[in-house]
Amino acid sequence: MQLSGTLAKVKESGAITLGVREAAGLSYTLGNGKYTGFHTEMGEIVLRDIQKSLGMPKLDIKYQPVTSQNRIPLVMNGTIDIECGSTTNNRTRQRDVAFAVTTFVEEQSIAVKLSSGITSIKELNGRTVAGTLGTMSLAQLRRHPRAVGVDFKELSGKDHSDSFGLLEMGRADAFVMDSSILARFISRSANPAGYKILADTFAHEPIACMLRKDDAAFKKMVDDSIKRQIADGSLWLLYDKWFMKPIPPSNERVGLPLSASTQSAWSSPNDKPMEDYTN
């Protein structure tokens, strides 16, 4: 097999670099250079499938933490070969990078403290809402029809942990972000019962592993692995492990059932951008 692009680089070097997140709902750190989460573990399985396809006796997986701000440049400049964090596939990003088939359809929502009395987007009027730098959540909320006439102040955290801290400390009345991220931070907080995620969701975003553009052979191998994991049921079991069962070592339970949107994406694997979804 004549290899080119990322596959040639991987075969020659014996290594591949996986972009991961330090504090996100689908990918996060355990400390000491160890990374885990639903999307991280799925990405590792993808890379082992690629190792088998290339007939490599050994593949060194290197982990590179990325942020909302630097993840796309690090894919483009070759620092990382594939990013399986929590990146939304949209048309703007498709100008610079490629995406594997969708592995999670994120719903944008809002976390609040129960004591706030907030139950809907309309009740954010006059409140302070936190978001994370480099993400689109606050802008999407502003643009949504249900937010018309709602005047709220914005605060931005440097990362998701910082943003949740703004809510936790009372500097913000709400934190707007992906439901999986909100559920993860609430489950790991000092008082999980003191928070809730509003049912008033306002966007659907296809989350996928990010790759360099114009590398069709590598993308096909990544897509084939994901489709295999869907078809044999292993991706469903992986989701159950990370979102419905207690997670060691603290044994917190996220409690985020597989959404109908994600099930639909898995039943017909595709790499459609966010703009093709109805919100």
Rank of each mutant, 00 (worst) to 15 (best):
G117Q: 07
G43V: 03
H39T: 03
K34T: 14
A130M: 07
E83V: 13
Y28K: 06
K52D: 12
T87N: 15
T119G: 05
Q51E: 12
A130H: 01
S68Y: 00
V75W: 00
S120H: 05
V129K: 05
M42T: 05
V101R: 05
E123S: 12
I61V: 15
T128R: 08
I50H: 00
G33N: 08
L74Y: 09
T128M: 04
M56G: 10
N32G: 15
R71T: 07
V101S: 03
M76C: 14
S68G: 06
L26Y: 03
R95L: 09
K58Q: 13
S109C: 07
Q64S: 15
G37F: 07
V105N: 05
Q108Y: 01
Q64M: 14
A130C: 07
G117F: 00
L26K: 01
G55C: 12
Q94N: 15
I121E: 02
D60A: 13
G37V: 02
R71Y: 00
L54H: 10
S27G: 11
I72P: 00
P57Y: 15
T87G: 08
H39E: 09
T102A: 10
N77E: 12
N77V: 09
V75I: 09
V75H: 00
F104A: 04
L54C: 09
P65D: 08
Q64P: 01
